[in-house]
Design a protein around this nucleic acid. Structure first.
Length: 694
DNA sequence: GAAGAGAGCGCC
DNA sequence: AAAGGGCGCTCTCTTC
């Protein structure tokens, strides 16, 4: 019936229009004419001409940039940063630099600046972004926001010169290099100079252009002009504003071929093309979609936590004279006056951290209060509790930073969803009619370490299911009952958690480069026992120890560690490899490759999710938290599981990956279907406070 | 007064 | 001599 209606509509529509559209024979556009000037596009006719030229000329790529303002005032983080709600973006101008290369190496640029306030031009822009060329921008995220705000689809082929510069310089200027001990004053001075040199290193468009020898004409007026758009009213754009807008697109267009060359030379071209540049869109989309938070719960929780915190602080002050629990100095003075200070001594320093407070909890009645107050203020200080971060669409749009780490992982901030306290996770909720689910890879870094370092024993154990159980079954053979030697992983995990945990610590120890002393600390055992355990453990993986050592050495000589796709993390300089460098030279290939496969999977999911109106909410290093309509929730879960497994297998065919889905409670983000951790924690706190405080 | 270091919490 | 990789964020305290 529905179909029939559509059909009759169409027939009716057709009869109104003229029978056959006239073919409009195009007159070739003069390339010289367009190459000479910046075309400011305000009318449909001008936009049509632009599209015609783009169709007629043999282009290679298109640089683009947008100018915009925000309609919401933004949240001031500190003196240097203010964060704006991406959904309140108001696109003003789009600039394009279409590049036509010549055979001899030169080329011609056609520059257009389009007034985005005229919505009649959008159908023409849609055609532009369907052109099969690379679209190059510097920090494409905001450009994508502008397109999405206008309801335009992005090009499937984005090149982000900012992200490329980040990828190219991973590991350079790492902060740990500047705190190395300098032997004399001269070295200290030199070090300081070095650091201030590095401060100047920037990924900005101007700085990047300089590195490639591209002249950027409007360097000195850039800041002023950028600002002029942020406070733009409705007035006509000035000639200078239009020129500036075009200049950024031109710079992006010019830097692209030079970056491609550089990428090839640095061995990361394929990595960039296959994974990193697609992730620009995926990552921006995650930020654009944002997450919904439970405002009511946040309000009530804040109230309760604040009142608890106040009560504790009052008690600590009234009874013990401690006025600031955050002050290391004051705590040291206080415990000194009680004669307990020596109980807090560790490695020659005094510490009042969580662990040592826990150890000393029974020594003094103030200690449980300190612990509770700390946790309460930490929870209260999380930016997820701040309603100012909620955008005009009612959702929170954190800053998801691509290549935020030197291994290639993501970071997030304002709020930091990737580091969100477990008990605060249920504050993340779905829209009406939607559900939240999570799928994570099981022990993915272990599998990747096994594959990268070609240790067949470790690969086999990974493939057997629960890798740590498999290890424990071999390692503790003589301590186990005959029947339990072949127990399935998940059953073994329940029956022998202690054995399994020891194996887990050892395994992560390999990946992170632990020492026997470190292992002894985590397992709370003696150095000798830890050493024996670790040595015997390594005997299970005869190839691994050697490969790790030789990897550290060769990478040290070469100057960088490398993921499976060739993405490099550089040392500051050649020479003796420090312990820390050795650790990350062997860890980066594992962590970095995991990040690569994760992005690859995310890129695929993003495309597949579209037809289900689903979205990735949080990319959590080895897990995707997604939001999907309830009527296709299972289907989306299935797709997520499938894609994650397949992608990992494509990168590492020798692995048989497993994923775990948490879809037990789709009404909020949670762990193991437990949505009330926060409430329970608060309840327990209140009960214990009643006992302590009169 | 701003900026950075350090301690300490949280996450994978 | 230190002693596990990668982070964000808040608070205190010191330094320039």
């Amino acid at each position: 019936m529905h179909l029939l209606n559509q059909w009759t509509d169409r027939v009716a529509g057709a009869s109104i229009k003229s029978v056959v559209p006239m073919i409009d024979y195009k007159i070739p556009k003069s390339p010289e004419y367009y190459a000479e000037r910046i075309m400011f596009v305000e009318t449909r006719e001008e936009a049509e001409n632009m599209v015609d030229l783009a169709y007629q000329r043999p282009l290679s790529h298109i640089g683009f940039d947008t100018e915009f303002r925000y309609d919401s005032p933004g949240v001031v983080i500190d003196k240097r940063s203010t964060v704006f709600d991406p959904r309140s973006i108001r696109p003003l101008l789009l600039s394009l630099a279409m590049t036509e290369p010549f055979g001899d190496g030169g080329g011609r640029l056609y520059r257009f600046v389009i007034d985005l306030r005229n919505r009649e031009l959008l159908p023409h822009l849609r055609k532009i972004f369907q052109l099969p060329y690379h679209f190059c921008a510097h920090y494409a995220k905001v450009e994508l926001f502008c397109l999405w705000k206008l309801g335009l689809a992005e090009s499937p082929c984005i090149w982000d010169s900012f992200i490329f510069e980040k990828a190219l310089h991973l590991g350079r200027y790492h902060h740990k290099y500047k705190i190395q001990n300098r032997k004399d004053e001269m070295q200290t001075i030199l070090a300081k100079e070095e650091v201030s040199e590095k401060k100047k290193f920037s990924y900005s468009l101007v700085a990047s252009c300089q590195r490639y020898g591209i002249t950027y004409a409007m360097e000195n007026s850039k800041e002023r002009l950028q600002k002029s758009f942020l406070i733009h009213g409705g007035e006509k754009f000035s000639k200078e504003q239009i020129e500036y807008s075009a200049e950024d697109a031109v710079a992006a267009a010019k830097i692209f071929p030079l970056q491609i060359d550089k990428a090839a030379r640095a061995g990361i071209l394929r990595h960039c093309e296959k994974v990193e540049m697609d992730w620009v869109t995926t990552n921006s989309r995650i930020e654009w979609d944002g997450v919904r938070v439970d405002v009511g719960k946040i309000e009530s929780v804040t109230k309760v936590l604040e009142s608890c915190k106040e009560k504790i602080k009052k008690q600590l002050y009234d009874e013990y004279g401690i006025c600031n629990i955050q002050s290391h100095k004051q705590l040291a003075e206080f415990f000194k006056s009680c004669g307990l200070l020596n109980k807090f001594k560790i490695k020659g320093k005094y510490s009042f951290d969580k662990e040592i407070l826990k150890k000393n909890v029974s020594l003094h009645p103030s200690i449980p209060l300190l612990r509770a107050a700390r946790r309460a203020s930490d929870l209260l200080a999380d930016k997820i509790m701040d309603p100012r971060f909620i955008g005009v669409d009612g959702r929170v749009h954190a800053d998801h930073r691509q290549l935020g780490t030197d291994t290639g992982r993501q970071t997030s901030r304002w709020p930091n969803f990737l580091g969100l306290d477990r008990i605060l996770r249920p504050l993340v909720i779905p829209e009406e009619g939607y559900g939240i689910g999570e799928v994570d890879w099981s022990q993915v870094e272990v599998g990747i370490a096994a594959a990268i370092y070609h240790d067949t024993a470790l690969i086999d154990m990974f493939n057997s299911g629960d890798v740590y159980s498999a290890m424990a079954q071999k390692f503790f053979k003589s301590d186990l009952l005959e029947n339990d030697l072949n127990l399935p992983g998940h059953e073994f995990k329940k029956k022998y958690p202690k054995f399994r945990n020891q194996m887990k610590s050892c395994t992560l120890g390999i990946i992170y480069g632990i020492t026997p002393i470190g292992l002894a600390e985590t397992l709370r055992t003696t150095k000798n026992k830890a050493t024996t355990l670790f040595d015997q453990f390594m005997e299970m993986f005869p190839d691994l120890k050697y490969v790790l050592e030789s990897t550290a050495q060769t990478s040290g000589i070469r100057g960088y560690g490398c993921t499976s796709t060739g993405l490099r993390r550089y040392r500051e300089k050649l020479g003796r490899v420090s312990r820390w460098e050795r650790n990350w030279l062997t860890n980066h290939p594992v962590q970095g490759s995991a990040a690569v496969v994760f992005k690859d999977a995310g890129n695929r999911l993003m495309k597949l999710y579209k037809r289900y109106d689903a979205r990735i909410v949080i990319p959590l290093h080895d897990a995707f938290i997604f939001e999907a309509p309830m009527d296709c929730f299972e289907k989306v879960t299935e797709i997520t599981e499938h894609v994650m497994c397949e992608t990992l297998q494509e990168h590492f065919p020798e692995l048989h990956p497993q994923v775990e889905a948490n879809i037990f409670l789709p009404t909020c983000w949670n762990k193991d279907g437990d949505g009330y951790v926060l409430e329970r924690w608060i309840e327990e706190l209140e009960v214990s406070l009643k006992e302590i405080i009169k």
